[in-house]
Design a binder for these strands. Structure first.
Length: 384
DNA sequence: AATCCTTTGAAGGGA
DNA sequence: TCCCTTCAAAGGATT
């Protein structure tokens, strides 16, 4: 993920990280900025950072091949969609709870990291993205009063039971103390600062510790107390500013450029996530000085297992994982290669993502941190 | 409370 | 290169 550095415009006051309230002036200034004046493309319909030339690396799908309603940020009147990599699965092949970005009412699911825009939105300048909505404030106002299911939220955040509107979200945001704003874990997890070479030297002075500044060029002072919050915008506006360091004592925020693109929710836990399995919980409690436990990415069978387990439990009416896994192993063996390939591809993607997030990590780091298994199976005794 | 069982695939190490 | 070991998930069974 690329990161755009926020220019510290004189008109934009940096929020006081220790301030008691959300800096309303800061937010107001932002809301009044026109799209092309905003330092980051927080306009969720646009992708001004598109790098690949149209027609080269982009596969085209006709509009009727895509479920328009699942991607409300797309212009349904556009002649066609541009899709990068896309996997289409029928609804009964995917468990809804495990694919929260999917629309359970849609005829089919879209999985994978997808960039999709209508052709008329593939423009270089943000202000050209939608000629009918010239500035960001108008875009926001156009959304006020809409119910949650009408907002152009990422599909994974759409909750038909939610009754709050964008106005309510804004009000709630304004009430939050600056240092209490929540930061979505998946964004922190996805956030990759730019390589050192892309950061101007003068901005590389004081960097915050991971996850804000993981793999940054400077080593942060671990003794320092960084109680700095991210500036979170309403979730219909998929842009958040993350504190990455300070310049001359002022907080510098960075924006993960692609965070507004609906993405497959990564299953890889963030670096400091507490372990979820009972076994791991016990292991890590033994030595708090150990490096944080980073789990292996799931392989293709594990993805298949995760998806099919409840189905098998229901069919066999057993919950014993040993029995369920034995059955899943048989079903995996009989699964057509075409079906298996979907899981292999997703496993590859997760492995690549894991490698990006933890470039220094190796599977051997987890060796020995689990109790050595003592097999129940005993070799058949040889008759004398 | 802690560990085993059970599956497949990926990865690492030793021969 | 081949073989072996370990670990990803997960919940009942076992120690």
């Amino acid at each position: 993920m690329e990161t755009m550095w926020v220019e510290m415009d004189d008109d934009l006051t940096v929020p006081d990280p220790n301030g008691p309230d959300l800096p309303q002036d800061f937010l107001q200034v932002w809301l009044k900025e026109t799209v092309n004046q905003l330092p980051v493309p927080i306009y969720p319909w646009c992708n001004s950072n598109r790098m690949e030339p149209m027609g080269e690396t982009i596969q085209r799908e006709t509009k009727d091949q895509l479920n328009v309603l699942k991607w409300p940020q797309c212009n349904p009147n556009g002649p066609e969609f541009m899709v990068k990599t896309i996997k289409i699965e029928t609804k009964d092949q995917l468990p809804v709870p495990e694919q929260p970005q999917c629309n359970p009412n849609g005829p089919e699911f879209m999985v994978e990291t997808v960039k999709r825009e209508t052709k008329d939105q593939l423009t270089e300048n943000a202000e050209d993205c939608d000629p009918n909505i010239p500035n960001f404030l108008q875009a926001l106002e156009a959304l006020l009063g809409k119910t949650a299911d009408q907002l152009p939220l990422p599909a994974k955040e759409c909750d038909p039971n939610r009754e709050d509107t964008l106005q309510a979200v804004l009000e709630e945001l304004r009430r939050q103390p600056a240092n209490c704003l929540p930061v979505p874990q998946e964004l922190l997890c996805d956030f990759h600062p730019p390589p050192a070479s892309t950061v101007p030297e003068e901005q590389c002075i004081d960097l915050l510790p991971p996850p804000f500044s993981a793999q940054m060029c400077n080593q942060p002072d671990q003794e320092q107390n960084y109680n700095v919050s991210a500036v979170m915008f309403p979730h219909c506006v998929q842009g958040n500013l993350f504190p990455v360091g300070t310049v001359n004592g002022e907080v510098v925020y960075a924006f993960p450029q692609e965070s507004y693109i609906p993405a497959f929710v990564p299953t890889v836990p963030p670096p400091n996530n507490p372990p979820t399995s009972r076994r791991r919980k016990c292991s890590t409690q033994k030595n708090v000085n150990e490096k944080p436990y980073i789990k292996k990415p799931l392989n293709a069978f594990m993805l298949f297992r995760q998806e099919q387990r409840l189905k098998v439990v229901a069919e066999l009416n057993v919950r014993d994982s040993a029995i369920v896994n034995t059955e899943l192993g048989k079903r995996w063996a009989h699964l057509p290669m075409q079906e298996k390939n979907k899981y292999f591809q997703e496993a590859d993607r997760l492995r690549d993502l894991h490698e990006q997030q933890y470039p220094e990590w190796s599977t051997k780091e987890n060796y020995g941190r689990k109790r050595k298994r003592i097999r129940r199976k005993i070799p058949t005794p040889v008759a004398i």
